[in-house]
Amino acid sequence: MTQGRVLIIAGSDSSGGAGIQADLKAVMALGGYGATAIAALTAQNTRGVEGIHAVPPAFVRQQMALFLDDIGADALKIGMLATAEVIEAVADEIELRAAGLPLVVDPVMVAKGGHRLLEESATAALIARLLPIARVLTPNLPEAEVLVGFSIADEAAMEKAGRALLERGPQAVLMKGGHLEGDDLVDLLVTAEGTVRFRASRLQTTSTHGTGCTLASAIACGLAQGRSVEQAIARARAYVRKAMETAPGLGHGHGPLNHGFTVSPFEVPLP
């Protein structure tokens, strides 16, 4: 099985727990090779996002082009893109140099602290340009509600929303149910062939910063390594859960995960 080359187009998280930083950690921990095209810079910590600086669209495309023309990719992952102009640029570059590669789209819109990460005017561009080319779309419930235009309060509504999103073009939609109440969690993988349910018990933890970014990148890594969508999701969910269970407990808000739990420390013998 190939190592798996994953090009990640997303925003940077200065606190290291989400965004590009989490993406790279996840891909490395699962044995893949991660590269990045940084689409936005953020100033944030575990308490929230305090500032965003969008990267010029032409420079985002240049980062993508240079990597794809040299090393190449087996899968791509999209996270925070911030503006409609960046979305258009990324979609154009994918169509030019990476058409047909597995693409995982995490429609990052709002941070856990409530700070908007995608301009409202950019939602239409996201729907029109990225959903039709996605192999897997991974919305949480608030993001899905924005995309489908109705509230999601239970598992039946999750599946209805997944079907509605499937009509927008992605080959598969992973509806993440973490925002529903209850001790049991369910994620729904919705495809044209049917719906697969992934169930787990809720972890009582505040170490949840970057879970969405990490999950999407872990899925992209699995696809890059030749796994099926269902196999990639199953491994990614197990990875994220263990990373939450072994989290270091850092910060005073939503803390980061332990992305490196699969990696053994390298010890240099003392002289």
Rank of each mutant, 00 (worst) to 15 (best):
A134Q: 01
S121G: 11
T191K: 07
L185I: 14
P132L: 06
K160N: 08
E143L: 14
L117R: 07
L117T: 11
V190R: 08
D92S: 15
G194N: 05
T138N: 02
A156S: 10
V186D: 03
A134I: 04
P139H: 05
T123M: 15
T138W: 13
G114R: 04
L117W: 15
V90T: 04
G182D: 00
A164Q: 13
D154I: 00
L141N: 02
P132V: 06
G114A: 04
A157G: 06
V196G: 07
S151P: 13
L166Y: 04
D183E: 14
A172L: 10
T191G: 08
V110D: 07
T191D: 03
E193T: 08
V196L: 12
F198Q: 08
V108I: 15
E155G: 10
E95N: 14
V104W: 15
V136N: 07
E120T: 10
P170M: 09
M109R: 11
M175L: 13
A111D: 09
E193N: 08
E181C: 12
A192T: 08
H115N: 10
R116G: 02
L118A: 05
L137P: 03
V108S: 02
L189F: 01
G194V: 04
N140G: 09
G113I: 00
T123G: 12
K112W: 00
D184K: 12
I94A: 10
V148E: 10
S121Y: 06
D187I: 00
I133H: 11
V104E: 01
L166E: 06
A164P: 00
A144D: 10
D183Y: 01
A164I: 06
V146F: 03
A91M: 13
L103T: 01
L101P: 00
V110F: 11
A99Q: 14
V90I: 06
V90P: 01
G162M: 04
S121K: 09
E159L: 05
D154M: 01
A156V: 10
P142K: 14
L118N: 04
E93C: 13
L131F: 12
P132I: 09
S121C: 10
A91Y: 11
N140Q: 12
M175W: 11
I152R: 01
G149D: 13
I152T: 05
E119Q: 14
T138E: 00
A128T: 09
L101H: 00
D154G: 05
E119D: 14
A99G: 12
A91I: 09
L103P: 00
A192N: 08
L118I: 04
A134C: 08
L189W: 02
E93W: 15
E193G: 07
M158G: 04
V146G: 06
E93P: 01
L141K: 03
L96W: 15
E120S: 12
A157N: 00
E95Y: 12
V110M: 13
D106R: 15
A124S: 14
V186S: 09
L188M: 08
A156T: 07
E181T: 13
P142V: 02
L141F: 02
R135P: 01
L96Q: 15
E145N: 11
L185K: 06
S151V: 12
R97L: 15
L147A: 08
R163S: 02
R163V: 03
L126W: 09
G113V: 00
E120R: 12
A91H: 10
I133G: 03
A164Y: 06
H179V: 02
V105P: 01
D154H: 01
E119Y: 14
L174P: 03
V190D: 03
A164S: 13
E93T: 11
A111L: 05
S151W: 14
A153C: 12
G178R: 01
